[in-house]
Amino acid sequence: MVKKLKYVALSALVLPGLGQLCLGRRVKGAVMIVLDNIFILAALFLALRSAGKLMLAGGKNVDSAQVLAAVQTDAPYARWLLGGFLLLWVYGIVDAATDQGSSNN
């Protein structure tokens, strides 16, 4: 039971997919970690793109409404990324808690 809590904590607090790796589900854990990295890198790309828009507008006489409109174009993509990561995170926790795995519990 203590090992099961360890696997759930790894998936919940460290990185979704680590609990699956410890349970012996290597393919599932690796796929989840790759998906986590895709979500994180895509979110970082969106954040840097929005920051670039703000920095470019800093040196010009641009209305704040125009800057806000330019940054808000990335908002739907950020919501999709956040939703996808949240679903993957919840799936990782539930799967680590319910999967028996191939290790000795």
Rank of each mutant, 00 (worst) to 15 (best):
K6N: 12
K6E: 12
K6Y: 08
Y7R: 13
Y7V: 03
V8E: 05
V8W: 04
A9H: 11
A9F: 15
A9K: 07
A9C: 10
A9T: 13
S11I: 02
S11C: 06
S11R: 05
S11G: 09
A12G: 14
A12D: 15
L13I: 15
L13V: 15
V14T: 15
V14E: 12
V14C: 13
L15V: 14
P16F: 02
G17R: 06
G17N: 07
G17K: 08
L18Q: 09
L18P: 09
L18R: 08
L18F: 15
L18Y: 06
G19A: 02
L21H: 00
L21P: 04
L21I: 10
C22E: 07
C22W: 03
L23P: 03
L23M: 03
L23T: 02
G24A: 06
G24E: 05
R25I: 00
R26L: 09
R26H: 11
V27Y: 11
V27F: 13
V27N: 09
V27E: 11
K28M: 04
K28R: 15
K28Y: 06
K28V: 11
G29D: 05
A30Y: 01
A30E: 02
A30N: 01
V31A: 06
M32K: 02
M32Q: 11
M32T: 04
M32R: 06
M32P: 04
I33A: 03
L35C: 14
D36C: 06
D36S: 08
D36R: 00
I38M: 06
I38W: 00
I38E: 01
F39P: 02
F39Q: 00
I40N: 00
I40L: 10
I40S: 07
L41P: 05
L41A: 14
L41K: 06
L41R: 08
L41D: 05
A42H: 04
A42L: 13
A43F: 13
A43S: 15
A43Y: 07
A43R: 04
L44G: 15
L44P: 02
F45K: 12
F45L: 12
L46M: 14
A47M: 14
A47H: 02
L48A: 10
L48R: 07
L48F: 14
L48H: 10
L48E: 06
L48V: 11
L48D: 07
L48M: 11
L48T: 04
S50R: 12
S50Q: 14
S50E: 14
S50A: 15
A51D: 03
K53I: 14
K53A: 10
K53H: 10
K53D: 07
L54A: 15
L54T: 07
L54Y: 11
L54K: 06
L54I: 09
L54N: 08
M55N: 09
